[in-house]
């Protein structure tokens, strides 16, 4: 009662010193709540998607189609990225290392940078742009044209038919793409070092072999698996929850690419910390 009458008095006087503070709390609180809500929704979606990847029924034809779409058709993009990254890396390393008379370290720098970091991260980002966007746009369009509802009415679970094949294909194919990228990237460094910087082919290759260890490649491939999973999940999640209309599908596509790219960078740090700390 007393509190109520106080509030009434405050209303009458027209100023409550707590109002600005409450406003700030309201804005902060609603922001935190919506963030937690979105995180929870994404976690629930991810859990459901993973569950359907392992529980029958499977759609082999859909999985095969996605393996080709996500894997095979991404090869040119990933290959070109790796090739030119390896070439630039050799050039830049040379510029830096000649100042310390350490040119012999170039082969090692190229192979470590490519296998540990550049090939998985750049392939992940390129695939997020190419595949993540395509997944979000396709599933988003299916959502707004009621094709996903139609799947349900035809006794086909959309998680098994649409989501699981893409998540399986993304997780399996990105490591293969990255392994290919590793080889092409090192080859890019080799080409520049031999034909541009005048290194001896034999010593360059032997230095590459000497420096490289299994963990360098394996850690990169493990990262790639995680990145592939992230790209597929973010594409599916944003597409599946797309709002109505062209604008809804457009936002879903943008959000899929942006969120996948940021998560790739965050998880790259976390995984590096786990592997090499």
């Amino acid at each position: 009662m007393q509190a109520a009458s106080q509030t009434l008095e405050t209303k009458k006087s027209g100023f409550n010193p707590l109002t600005p503070l409450l406003d700030v709390c309201t804005v902060l609180g609603s922001g935190i709540l919506s963030f937690l809500e979105a995180t929870g929704r994404l976690a629930a979606f991810t859990g459901q998607a993973v569950g359907h990847c392992f529980a029958p029924r499977f759609f082999p034809a859909q999985i095969a189609r996605q393996l080709i779409d996500i894997g095979y058709y991404s090869l040119p993009v990933v290959g070109m990225t790796a090739l030119f990254t390896g070439m630039v890396l050799a050039l830049q390393s040379y510029t830096g290392f000649t100042r310390f008379n350490a040119e012999s370290a170039i082969a090692g720098v190229v192979v470590l940078s490519i296998t540990r970091e550049l090939s998985p991260v750049l392939a992940g980002l390129m695939v997020a742009g190419r595949v993540g966007a395509a997944i979000a746009a396709e599933i988003g369009t299916m959502r707004v044209t009621e094709q996903i509802d139609a799947l349900r009415t035809l006794s086909v679970n959309p998680f098994k038919y649409l989501i699981a094949p893409r998540v399986i294909a993304g997780t399996l194919m990105l490591p293969i793409l990255v392994l290919t990228g590793d080889i092409i990237g090192v080859m890019g460094g080799y080409i520049v070092s031999i034909y541009n910087l005048g290194f001896s082919p034999v010593s360059y290759l032997s230095q590459t072999w000497d420096v490289m260890q299994n963990i360098d490649v394996v850690s990169g491939l493990a990262k790639a698996g995680v990145f592939g999973f992230i790209v597929a999940i973010m594409g599916c999640y944003h597409g599946f929850n797309s709002k109505r209309g062209a604008q809804g599908v457009g936002s879903a596509t943008t959000n899929a690419v942006v969120s996948a790219s940021i998560l790739i960078l965050i998880f790259n740090y976390l995984l590096t910390q786990i592997f090499f700390s």
């Binding site: 299916m142 509802d149 139609a150």
Partner: peptide
């Protein structure tokens, strides 16, 4: 079910 926009795949 027949959907409003047919919803064909």
């Amino acid at each position: 079910m027949l959907f409003q926009g047919a919803a064909l795949f």
